[in-house]
């Protein structure tokens, strides 16, 4: 019952945002649609997530979600400046290489979040995830030496620390 209520309230709030006005007709139609959605999808969405923490930890996790989103927005603008500088050079000077990095994550959900969102960090693009050895394959765009690769590996482990706060 808690899972169905957890789906029902955000979809009803999103329905009021799309409709644009609060009314009795909008509320009745929205209740019918959101009930159908929450009855169908509630078991599939929370199949992998273990909800074992209480309500006090829930507000701390909302704070970390906002922190992660604002971190990625700040990070994508810095990395876009570096890529667009390569686009306008007369002779582009990138040197791509493919590197494998070992993870420290235990939970599968945080791995799935980090693989998709690593596209927005500075000059990295995740190509694959190996399930046996637990390491990512990452395509860098402008790494010229081995010393520069070590700096960027520590920068990714900082993102791993933030993402692991959400699902632990």
């Amino acid at each position: 019952m808690k899972k169905k209520l957890f789906i029902f309230i955000p979809t009803l709030a999103l329905w009021f945002v799309f409709a644009g006005r609060v009314n009795i007709q909008v509320f009745l139609l929205g209740t019918i649609v959101c009930t159908i959605i929450s009855l169908i999808l509630a078991d599939n969405i929370f199949r992998l997530v273990q909800m074992k923490y209480g309500t006090k930890k829930f507000f701390i996790k909302i704070y970390y979600i906002l922190l992660v989103v604002s971190t990625y927005i700040y990070d994508v603008i810095i990395s876009a400046v570096r890529v667009s500088r390569h686009a306008f050079e007369i002779k582009p000077s990138f040197s791509p290489r493919v590197v494998s990095i070992k993870t420290t994550h235990i939970n599968k959900n945080s791995v799935a979040i980090l693989v998709n969102f690593i596209t927005l960090t500075q000059g990295a693009l995740a190509m694959d995830f190996d399930n046996l050895n637990e390491n990512y394959y990452i395509h860098w765009i402008d790494v010229h030496s081995d010393y520069e690769a070590e700096i960027k590996k520590t920068l990714i482990s900082k993102h791993e620390y933030l993402v692991a706060k959400i699902f632990d």
Binding site: V76, A80, V83, S84, T119, L120, L125
Partner: peptide, 8 residues
């Protein structure tokens, strides 16, 4: 790389 970062 160009299609993800610069566009976003």
């Amino acid at each position: 790389h160009a299609g993800s970062k610069c566009l976003m």
